[in-house]
């Protein structure tokens, strides 16, 4: 009996121990495939910092100080070929209720860039193919910075970006980008107009 046990023990000691690698490799390949598919290469992404004002807006009390020197960039949503027909606040309210009105405005509308009474557009007046002239906007802002006289409330030129609801976001970002490029520090986004 003792001899048999000794023989078994000897056999166990001399036997080659083999690790079962197949399940481990299976699991590793599964993980590898999962991570390979989960991986998504994204393009370079940046951010534009837009600090919202603390002296105006819905959450704050009081009236912001008035200055006539401010530059108000208007991004209007008008009818293609007829810039005098712009989307009024009541049109937007109607478009919110009626999807067909909204889709009409989306299909037949275009962005028009305006400062005071000047249209800053490349292409003829009322042209449906006209595009906002960002270079003209930059020149206008730089001129505004040069002529600006600092006040206690406004140490730098205030710029207000007023975009209509249906204007593509790219145009708003382009206007913001031009302001940042020109060195404007005081940029505000105007709240949408409220219908009477």
């Amino acid at each position: 009996m003792a001899r048999e046990a000794k023989k078994m023990l000897q056999g166990a000691l001399t036997e080659d121990v083999e690790l079962p690698l197949a399940p481990m490799i299976d699991v590793i390949f599964q993980l590898l495939i999962f991570f390979m598919f989960a991986l998504k290469f994204t393009g370079e992404e940046g951010r534009l910092y837009a600090k919202l004002p603390t002296n105006r807006g819905l959450g704050y009390e009081g009236t912001p100080p008035i200055t006539l020197q401010e530059v108000r960039i208007k991004l209007l949503w008008v009818q293609k070929g007829n810039w005098s027909k712009r989307m009024l606040p009541e049109d937007y309210e109607q478009a919110k209720k009626n999807p067909s009105t909204r889709s009409w405005w989306v299909q037949n509308g275009m962005t028009v860039l305006k400062i005071r009474d000047d249209f800053l557009m490349r292409g003829g007046m009322n042209s449906p193919e006209a595009k906002p002239d960002w270079k003209a906007l930059e020149a206008r802002i730089r001129k505004g910075i040069q002529n600006f006289k600092p006040t206690k409330s406004y140490p730098t030129l205030p710029v207000i970006i007023e975009g209509y609801q249906l204007v593509p976001f790219q145009h708003v970002v382009s206007a913001l980008n031009v302001c940042v490029k020109a060195g404007v520090k005081d940029i505000t986004f105007a709240a949408p107009e409220i219908p009477f």
């Binding site: 393009g43 370079e44 992404e45 940046g46 951010r47 534009l48 910092y49 837009a50 600090k51 919202l52 004002p53 603390t54 807006g57 819905l58 959450g59 704050y60 975009g163 609801q165 976001f169 708003v172 970002v173 913001l176 980008n177 986004f189 709240a191 949408p192």
Partner: peptide, 21 residues
Amino acid sequence: VQWVFEVCSMSKVIHVYIGAS
């Protein structure tokens, strides 16, 4: 984006970043 600005203003959130490429 106007809704976002509006709700941020209501909650006194002023630090806003706009994602751009």
